[in-house]
């Protein structure tokens, strides 16, 4: 049947093949060029990143044995005792974990209040003053581009060790990210109610209170919750620089090679983070339903 199909003379086939080859050659060249650039970048990056593959292969057992060593020895016969041994400092760690969550809560609160207070100034459709809009927008940008851990380092230098610098660092960084998100929410509202309130003679604050806030509250709450989720995660690490929470104990455990402590604390962190993710996802879905029912 193929012979029946191949009714074309050979020169016509060659001609078509050549046309096709010419057309795909450019694409292929581009593809190989991209591959070459990637390979070059990877080599340069390997140099900078001090990647030593030979060393890695030679010491690969270190790699796996580390993760073997942090695991506790749990026996079936002495399970309760082994667990108690593994989690010897459970109450202390739990207190630190609660601290972490409270730090995340207060940080999110500061960020949400700050973003709430400024988002109406930076949204194109509600902003009372273009210069103020520009300035506050740059402020938001600064707050979210500088990582929260950098703020934490600076604040530890200013406020001393403890949860306070952590709260402020998370708060400021959240203000930056939430400020941007809240602004976008406000920019997407229906403007008819705004005109309605303005037409009755309402000023900036009254317009925002009665025409804008009712439209944006559910979305704001949803974003704030999402931020809280992320902040719980951040809260677990700001302790590395002395800004409170479970991070400080994890830092010590890893640095001083208290192997089983590492896995104990890590497990607690993972469970907490996953738990808060699930709860906040539930609530956010609920909020989304409220929003769509409206």
């Amino acid at each position: 049947m193929v012979s029946g199909l191949l009714s074309l003379p050979q020169e016509r086939v060659d001609q078509l093949l050549a046309t096709y080859a010419r057309a795909v050659a450019r694409r292929r060249r581009q593809f190989y060029l991209v591959l070459a650039v990637l390979a070059l970048l990877a080599t340069v990056a390997g140099r900078y990143g001090e990647v030593d593959l030979a060393y890695l292969l030679q010491h690969f057992s270190n790699f796996t044995s580390y993760f073997g060593r942090i695991l506790p020895t749990l026996t079936f016969t002495h399970f309760a005792a082994d667990m108690a041994d593994w989690y010897w400092n459970l109450s202390g760690w739990l207190k630190l974990l609660v601290d972490t969550i409270l730090i995340a809560y207060l940080g999110t609160l500061i960020g949400t209040l700050g973003a709430f207070a400024t988002a109406f100034l930076t949204a194109q459709n509600t902003a009372p003053n273009p210069y103020l809009l520009f300035a506050v927008k740059r402020f938001h940008e600064f707050c979210r581009t500088v990582p929260d851990i950098v703020f934490a380092l600076l604040f530890v230098a200013a406020f001393g060790l403890g949860p306070l610098p952590g709260i402020l660092a998370i708060g400021i960084h959240s203000l930056g990210t939430l400020g941007k998100l809240f602004t976008e929410v406000v920019e997407n509202i229906d403007m008819k109610p705004v005109e309605g309130v303005r037409s009755t003679g309402g000023n900036f604050v009254e317009t925002v209170r009665f025409a804008v806030v009712p439209q944006v509250l559910a979305n704001f709450a949803s974003y704030a919750l999402l931020r809280f989720e992320i902040n719980v995660r951040s809260g677990t690490v700001i302790g590395f620089v002395g800004a409170g929470g479970i991070g400080q104990d994890l830092f010590v455990a890893i640095r001083k090679f208290y192997y089983t402590d590492v896995s104990a604390i890590l497990l607690m962190i993972i469970v907490t983070v996953v738990l808060f993710d699930l709860i906040s996802e539930r609530i956010r879905h609920h909020l989304a339903r409220l929003e769509s029912d409206r």
Partner: peptide, 15 residues
């Protein structure tokens, strides 16, 4: 490739 091109040519879309 030759088979595929012949099939396309049958329906005037080899180009």
């Amino acid at each position: 490739k030759a088979i595929a091109l012949s099939a396309l040519e049958q329906f005037d879309i080899a180009a």
